[in-house]
């Protein structure tokens, strides 16, 4: 396949065009992805998530800038990394349109040929990412990008999909976004491998740092995998669980704390590699992705086989309160028409 060869050679336009095809779920895009897939596995995937306005894009801008100039560590300095950034913003639920503005904060890094930034809209997906994000990250991985930042939409408490897609999850907070009760709630804090309190030059930063640290001390880091997967990977994941998420300040606008954050992201990756947690996470990631795809394709296949309108009439029967949703679906699956 022509585009595959071009992408492996580093052709950026071919890469951009394939990303579009994959995003639009075109069959030719998936074909190319299949051909590229054996080339994946070289990238450190870093998720960046947090509430709207905490400075995720600005932080990614700084992290990428620093990585390009100094690499992961002093020793590896000579080598400049190829970096990709996938930045997701929400689609309008009414028109399907979207305003993708993450590039505004990333102006320091565009023009650098070692950095590839791609904006994408959620196109109706919940969970903080888009349906095609995983596939697009695979394409970028195969294309040779060694660090891939996945920036979610401004996330609240439930947008935790990025935990399944990234090796290292950085949760970005800022002073003044709620008290420690918010921090105790399950969800986004639990997926953090590294917690960053950005805008640490604002008043109240010390309090935010302190209360987040306190909350994390109360809870031993929970297992990130859904229960079904814990059994088989228990040993490896137990080793990975020795990592306790640091809570650290940054100021993305000035760059304070950025070098140290790169260091903690790198430390986390090394920890995953040495503890065997990386393999466990890869397994969990692939498994959950395949489960999702299986669900989707089973549903499509099932609906195709149904007689015309049978699903719609089941919907009607629920709307009329004749059946509960679960009952209506069971009858559909068992082939009982009302």
């Amino acid at each position: 396949m022509e585009s595959v060869k071009q992408i492996l050679k580093g052709d950026r336009l071919a890469l951009a065009r394939l990303l579009t095809k994959v995003e639009n779920e075109e069959p030719s895009g998936f074909e190319a992805l299949s051909a590229l897939y054996p080339h994946t596995g070289g990238a450190h995937r870093i998720g960046i998530t947090g509430a709207p306005g905490t400075g995720k894009s600005s932080l990614v801008n700084r992290l990428a800038l620093h990585l390009r100039s100094s690499g992961w560590s002093e020793q590896a300095k000579a080598k400049s990394l190829k970096i990709a950034i996938v930045a997701v913003d929400p689609s309008s639920p009414f028109t399907g349109g979207a305003f993708l503005g993450d590039r505004i904060r990333m102006r320091d890094i565009f023009g650098d040929p070692g950095i590839f930034i791609r904006s994408m809209a959620t196109r109706g997906a919940l969970g903080g990412l888009a349906r095609a994000t995983a596939d697009m990250v695979d394409v970028l991985d195969a294309a040779g990008f060694e660090a891939i930042f996945i920036e979610t939409v401004g996330a609240g408490q439930a947008e935790v999909d990025v935990a399944r897609m990234a090796h290292t999850v950085v949760v970005v907070g800022a002073p003044g976004l709620g008290d420690d009760v918010q921090a105790i709630k399950a969800g986004i804090l639990e997926i953090a491998d590294i917690l960053v309190v950005n805008k640490a030059d604002l008043p109240g930063a010390e309090n935010t740092l302190r209360s987040l640290r306190l909350v994390l001390e109360l809870a031993s880091p929970p297992d990130r995998q859904p229960p079904s997967e814990i059994e088989e990977t228990k040993g490896e994941e137990a080793a990975a669980a020795n990592w306790s998420p640091p809570v650290l300040p940054t100021v993305a606008t000035s760059g304070d704390g950025v070098a140290e954050r790169i260091q903690s992201i790198h430390d986390h990756y090394q920890h995953l590699q040495q503890s065997g947690g990386l393999a466990a996470r890869e397994r969990a990631r692939v498994r959950s992705e395949m489960e999702g795809l299986l669900r989707e394709s089973l549903m499509e296949g099932f609906l195709e086989q149904q007689s015309e309108g049978s699903f719609e009439s089941a919907v009607e029967s629920v709307l009329n309160k004749k059946k509960a949703p679960r009952q209506a679906v069971r009858e559909l699956v068992e082939g009982k028409q009302k």
């Binding site: 579009t20 028109t95 565009f110 023009g111 930034i117």
Partner: peptide, 25 residues
């Protein structure tokens, strides 16, 4: 109107604009 708009902000050079057009296809 249902389109996805990528906005790059102020003070862009032609090089930055062309590069963004390429990466975002």
């Amino acid at each position: 109107a249902g389109m996805e708009v990528i906005y790059t902000g102020l003070r862009q050079t032609p090089e930055m604009i062309a590069e963004a057009a390429l990466q975002e296809d």
